[in-house]
Computed example of a mutant assay.
Amino acid sequence: MNGDSHLRFLDWDLTKSRYNETDALPLMATPGPVLMILALYLLYVLKIGPSLMTKREPYKLKAALVLYNGIQVVGSVYLAQRYFVQLMQQGILPRTCHLDIENERTEILVSIWFYFAAKVTELLDTVFFVMRKKDNQVTFLHLYHHSIMMVGTWAYLKYWPSTTLIFIGFLNSMVHVFMYTYYGLAALGPEVAKYIFWKKYITKIQLIQFVCIIIHYNTAVRYSECPPSNGVATFVACNTVFFLLLFLNFYRQSYNRVNKQCNGISNKEKCVNSIKEE
């Protein structure tokens, strides 16, 4: 057997970005930092945090929660308006491959990076749950959602960036404006939380969001001049459907739990509201 017949392996370089501009953005040069963040996150919320809190009273964290949720609201408003402007300029379903236009590519990549950065900060949601001993809220849905959104957005930006994420980012940021506004106001105490009427609509809005994303993404893949690979398109579609099913199951279980606990209670509306604030 001569030297030219040796086995050849695929040359996978996980540090190589689709566009060189991506590597200049924080945390984007190599997969190491984002994987370290994910590992520390899961280690803390699944092992270290619960262990430290075993013999401790839950922290109130009122000021921290109000500040954190306020920052998330401001950040979500900024992202929503940034993405809205880009959607108006490029179109909701652009046929032109704007990533091929040099003076537009950097702006698109930075916009996607901001979305990734938001996913990193949102990991604190779970950290606060652990510190407040809200163990019932650290579910598979919660952990999977936060983990895959951070890592998935990083990989999307690094290897297969697409303007379709601008639409996804716009919808998600709008949902987060309402969601974090609720959590920020609820952190002020039950005397404020009882007047917040949109808590029961948040999960419904999230479900509508996933349906819109599935429709938009599959349509954009068909019409765009630079669609992602079939593998990426399949993963995004399947993962969004998975999210939809998980949130549907969460909504159904929450609805059944509330109705079961309040069954037979005269003031049912008050009972429902008190359970939803848990």
Rank of each mutant, 00 (worst) to 15 (best):
T153V: 15
F235I: 12
C226N: 07
S173A: 15
F242L: 14
K133E: 06
C238L: 14
Y159V: 10
R132N: 07
C226Q: 08
K260N: 13
F197Q: 08
Y156R: 10
H142I: 13
L124W: 13
T181G: 12
G152Y: 10
G169Q: 06
L188A: 08
V127G: 04
K133A: 04
A186Y: 05
W160R: 15
G189H: 12
T164A: 15
L245N: 04
P227W: 07
Y255V: 03
L207E: 02
W198R: 09
S229W: 06
G169T: 09
T153N: 14
L207N: 01
T219N: 05
A155S: 13
M149E: 04
M150H: 09
N256W: 12
I202L: 15
C212G: 02
R257G: 09
N259A: 09
T126P: 06
L157M: 11
P228A: 07
L165S: 15
F210P: 01
S162M: 07
N218T: 07
F170P: 02
F210E: 00
R132V: 05
F250C: 00
V221Q: 01
V211K: 01
T234G: 03
H216V: 03
V211Y: 03
F170D: 01
V192N: 06
F170S: 04
R132C: 06
C262M: 11
Y144E: 09
V192A: 07
H176S: 13
R132M: 10
L248K: 00
R132Q: 13
F167W: 12
F243G: 01
F242S: 12
V236W: 03
V241H: 00
Q253W: 02
